[in-house]
């Protein structure tokens, strides 16, 4: 039950200017687990000294156990993840990834499903469409992109839902009118969208205006990668001083020092790992579900399994 798995880049395809598809296979023996439509993985990319984590949706067949596919659009202003994948990545390279997680799942009690993809946002829509096609659900796809050459997954979508894929090409001044798309739909219809922020916001606004329940409007979310910025820690009683690197939690870093720290759930819920903060020269970043607002405000407690310090040094009574 490992937290990460190693994959090999087995194929790189340039699909359109600035859009590349990567095929990944398990490094060494074994096969991938299956996943559900809308899932993403988190890649650890070797940018400099510290791994850089980016989330990407899996776009292939969720039942395919030998090859997973992702598609990456080069973001010129990115922190470097997509640029590394476009400029440095080569077939045969190995990467660590976190197993699939789904924060954009299909609602299986839904009677009809409307899928909307904007540009590279088509990736989770592809695996959702495959799943809906497999279970024989009633669905339709609306796919918007900048110009004809950017509709890179049109053929795959058409094969999954013949006659039920609608194309909107921006260079031809075609765009999705969400008010008309979402009006007059029968009860039990669910709406899913992944695309640019402005497009998602416009669709949600149209849905709300038309009286759609919040529970039937879905947009893609990613799990925030574990870890964060590095910071320094002093353990007062054990007399240790060390740095918590970006890829480790505070609890993991304490454990690496050979110090026994309390823990149970390792997910910020149980309250067992609470430690007393003696000094914090920086902002405490509380990510737990346990501490009350008053406890957070006091700055005297921290849950080591999920919470961190922004900059500076944290002194703990341990």
């Amino acid at each position: 039950m490992s937290a990460s798995m190693q994959v090999e880049i087995t194929r790189i395809r340039d699909l359109a200017p600035g859009i590349r598809e990567f095929s990944l296979s398990p490094a060494g023996e074994g096969s991938f687990p299956v996943y559900s439509g809308g899932s993403h993985i988190v890649l650890s990319l070797p940018l400099g000294a510290r791994p850089h984590r980016n989330a990407y949706s899996l776009l292939g067949d969720p039942n395919e156990r030998h090859t997973w596919r992702i598609a990456v659009r080069k973001q010129e202003d990115s922190r470097g993840g997509s640029r590394w994948l476009h400029e440095q990545a080569r077939e045969g390279m190995k990467l660590d990834i976190a197993p699939p997680m789904n924060l954009f799942p299909l609602v299986r009690t839904g009677r009809r499903h409307i899928l909307v993809a904007g540009g590279i946002g088509v990736t989770p829509i592809l695996s959702q469409a495959r799943e809906l096609a497999r279970i024989g659900a009633d669905f339709e796809v609306h796919y918007a992109y900048r110009g004809p050459e950017f509709g890179v997954f049109s053929d795959e979508l058409e094969a999954l839902a013949p006659g039920r894929v609608h194309h909107y090409v921006q260079s031809r001044r075609e765009q999705i009118e969400f008010r008309s798309l979402l009006s007059g739909r029968p009860l039990g219809t669910h709406f899913y969208i992944c695309g640019p922020a402005g497009m998602v916001a416009a669709s949600m606004e149209a849905g709300h205006t038309l009286g759609w329940p919040e529970s039937h409007l879905h947009s893609e979310q990613f799990l925030a990668p574990a870890g964060g910025e590095a910071f320094d820690v002093k353990l007062a009683k054990s007399d240790k001083q060390f740095t918590v690197p970006s890829e480790l939690s505070l609890l993991e870093a304490i454990e690496q020092q050979g110090v026994d720290a309390p823990y149970l759930c390792r997910g910020g819920a149980c309250g067992q790992c609470e430690l007393e903060v003696l000094e914090a020269s920086g902002e405490l970043l509380h990510h737990d579900l346990y501490l009350s607002a008053a406890e957070r405000a006091s700055g005297r407690k921290i849950m080591t399994c999920v919470s961190r310090l922004k900059g500076g040094c944290l002194t703990l009574n341990l």
Binding site: P99, C265, G268, A269
Partner: peptide, 17 residues
Amino acid sequence: FERALKYLLMLQQGRPV
């Protein structure tokens, strides 16, 4: 139950509790 539910909603495959 509120805390337990939030925790469980984020449960990941291959990492049972």
